Amino acid sequence: MDQRRAIEIMSGGRGGLGAGLLRAATWALSKPYACLVRLRRWLYGVGVFSPHQAPAPVISIGNITTGGTGKTPMVAWVVEWLKAAGMSPAILTRGYKARQGKSDEAEMLWKLTAAPVVADADRVGSARAAVEAGADVLVLDDGFQHRRLKRDLDIVLIDATNPFGFGHCLPRGLLREPLSALREADAIVITRSDMIAPAELEALSACLAELAPQASLHRAGHAPTAVVVEAGRHLPPRHLEGRKIVAFCGIGNPEAFFACLEGLHAELAERIAFDDHVAYGQPELARIRQAAEASGAQALVTTAKDRVKLVRPDLPAPLWTLKVEICITDGREVLLDRIRGAVRR
């Protein structure tokens, strides 16, 4: 089952007997899953399991749902601030769906930050290796559920467009653990906060304040900063205005990417959403080629995360990349104070 169909079933958008039976079956499976992840967090909390202390401060950036909440831009934002403050950060990532020892997430993080990136499922070992190589602060990518490594600051991202993953744990919904886990967050950043109505945003903020009264609350948006065209030239985002394009991506929240392009007044002749972490093979490239030729698009536009996986793809139209950065729109100084406090340990 592809990602789009799974989301339609989880959200209730797909009707019919088959979809209803799947929702019932996955609801039943989600209950023992939720109990297990809650038990695991509790065992760490009471000291049955002990997290490992890294030889340098650890800032974790994670989420409570699967899919794209904006972790990669947030990691880049934190790393850039640490570097500007005179520190030597390294990024620890698990290297999800690595191929031939390489991870698209790791490669993208390195290109965004020029900071050392260690891709290894063993975060304890990678923390040690990063410090031995010269890092004096560690940024843990997708770390909220990774309890083995003790952290000095837990930043959790909540996507305003789907904050609670349809209200259920996996596999019925997108929650990686029950919402009670938010009580252990130090800071919560509502990403894509500019993509919902002000009243919805206020209601979400109030809900999060109740779920995590100990956490500072912040808001962020995703700002397009450039269109990378042929030969790596960077043009302003307005370069897309009025241009007929085919947009494609393989990320956790493709609709946010498409909405961003529409906000730049590009003409989307077709939008193609592949599964998150897609490996671009011949079937995917054939679909992109067909869309480009059928639509007469002036260009193909994708994300930076997808672009690193496309090496000489032989497409019938120019391949452009939309660069996006996260922008903390509310509570920036408070968040920076939390980061300063974490690195002073």
Rank of each mutant, 00 (worst) to 15 (best):
V246P: 07
H218M: 06
P237D: 04
P224T: 13
V246R: 04
A226D: 06
E241L: 13
L235V: 04
G221I: 06
G232L: 07
T225G: 01
F248T: 14
A226R: 01
E230P: 00
R219I: 02
H234N: 02
G232I: 08
L240Y: 13
A220N: 04
H218W: 07
H218F: 06
P224C: 05
A223R: 14
L240H: 10
G242A: 14
G232P: 00
A231Q: 10
T225L: 01
R233F: 00
V229G: 05
L235C: 02
L217C: 11
H239T: 14
R219P: 01
V228A: 01
R233D: 00
L217P: 03
K244W: 10
V246K: 05
P224Y: 13
E230K: 14
E241T: 15
H234F: 00
E230S: 07
S216A: 13
A223P: 00
A231W: 11
F248C: 14
L240R: 12
H218Y: 07
P236Q: 08
A220W: 01
R243D: 10
H234W: 00
A226P: 01
R238Y: 10
L240G: 02
E241V: 14
A226M: 03
P236M: 07
A223I: 08
I245E: 09
P236H: 10
A220G: 02
R243P: 04
V228P: 00
L240E: 13
H218K: 12
L240K: 09
H218C: 06
A231V: 05
L235E: 04
R238W: 10
L217W: 13
V246M: 11
R219F: 05
V227F: 05
A231M: 06
H218A: 08
R219T: 05
L235I: 01
R238S: 11
H239W: 15
A247S: 10
V228C: 08
F248P: 12
V227C: 10
A231R: 14
A226Y: 03
I245M: 13
A226W: 04
L240N: 12
F248R: 15
V229S: 08
K244M: 12
H239Q: 15
E241F: 15
V246E: 12
L217A: 12
T225I: 04
H218D: 04
H239F: 15
P224M: 11
T225S: 01
T225D: 02
R233Y: 00
I245D: 09
I245Q: 11
I245Y: 09
R238C: 09
R238V: 09
V246W: 03
